[in-house]
Amino acid sequence: MTSVSRFARITGTGSYLPPRRITNHDLVADLAQRGVQTSDEWIVERTGIHARHFADEGVTSSDLGLQASLQAIAAAGIAAQDIDLIIVATSTPDMVFPSTAAILQNKLGITNGCPVFDVQAVCSGFVYALTVADAMIRAGNARRALVVGAEVFSRILDFQDRTTCVLFGDGAGAVVLEASDTPGILASDLHADGRYTDILCVPGHVSGGKVLGSPLLTMDGQAVFKLAVGVLEKVAHATLAKAGLDERAIDWLIPHQANIRIMQSTARKLKLPMDKVIVTVHDHGNTSAASIPLALDYGVRSGQVQPGQNVLLEGVGGGFTWGAVLVKM
């Protein structure tokens, strides 16, 4: 008997940004009232960010993830009940437990008993989650997976720290990944180095009904930048090598949308012009685990990313984590 190879392909994408759009000018005015001085020019020059979206009070990661998921499910042409695996990548879960994925499952009305769980790898979370979903589909443990990146980073920002509070925003992106007899996820490569946990972290935790430590984001920007530009090139080449390809095979690069300078540096090292890079950081800011699926959905819906093209997704995040996935759309 001949065994049939089993692969996984992205069949639908979706995204959602909360309606409240905060421009640099809006943020600069708000920070000035707090006694923090910055400017639109300072933010744009260092990051490329012009605006970001903040969720209203009471709106959670699962709420954002729900809207992105409904889009992805509709784009895939399936029903929510057809989903048999949900993975949510988030660093800003709705609660300590249960998982945001379980809350999302309920909001989607999925009652088929499918497994659900969260992945926490910060800005690399979506790449990690997509790799796990691919492995589970290939192993026969799922047929249709919903993979979501959803964040409300505005809840963990220190608005007295101009070096971090200007960077982040809220949003969600999602994909439906389905079993296929033709390859879709061509290769992936994941890494982490826990020696650098302190350069990007939220060091607080809940104990005895109180928050111990700081519940706000802290970051050593120079250290993160230096590590990011180095590992993104290496993980891209490692992923391409696993697929038996080189940079010439990349139709689109969709990096984690953290900083335009990091993206420009990565593109140069991969010998890619910027017109082959999907860029949304100017309007979304850094939405952590949501940034890659947000940018992917933008690329698909704008008509830039076409079926059959090779798309390289890659990101870095607190942990320190990094990874890449090469996708044939």
Rank of each mutant, 00 (worst) to 15 (best):
S154R: 01
R144V: 12
A79V: 03
A74G: 01
D84W: 09
A68I: 09
A174S: 14
Q71Y: 00
Q160R: 06
A129P: 05
F117G: 10
F153D: 05
N106D: 11
R144C: 15
T163A: 04
C114K: 12
C114G: 12
Q81L: 15
A76G: 03
K107A: 05
A139W: 11
S124R: 09
I156M: 05
S154Q: 08
K107P: 07
S99N: 07
A75T: 08
Q71E: 00
Q81E: 15
V116K: 13
T92K: 01
T131R: 03
E178R: 06
I86Y: 06
F159C: 04
N112Y: 07
D94L: 00
V166Y: 13
A79F: 10
G173S: 07
I110Q: 12
S99F: 12
L157M: 10
M136V: 15
Q67V: 14
T100L: 12
S99T: 12
A121I: 07
S124V: 07
F117S: 10
V119E: 00
T90V: 01
A139N: 07
I78R: 04
A102P: 14
V122P: 11
L130Y: 14
G125E: 03
R162K: 15
Q71H: 09
D158Q: 01
N112H: 12
A79C: 05
I78D: 11
A74F: 00
R155V: 06
C114V: 09
A139R: 12
L104E: 08
S99G: 07
I87S: 06
V132Y: 10
P98T: 06
A129W: 03
I103F: 14
A150G: 04
Q160D: 15
S99L: 11
G149E: 00
P115H: 09
T164E: 05
D82F: 05
P115F: 05
I83H: 03
T131Y: 08
E151Y: 00
V175A: 13
F97K: 10
I78P: 15
L146T: 08
V148S: 06
F159N: 02
M95T: 07
I156K: 08
V175T: 08
Y128F: 10
R143W: 03
T100Y: 13
G77V: 01
A129T: 10
Q105R: 10
L177P: 13
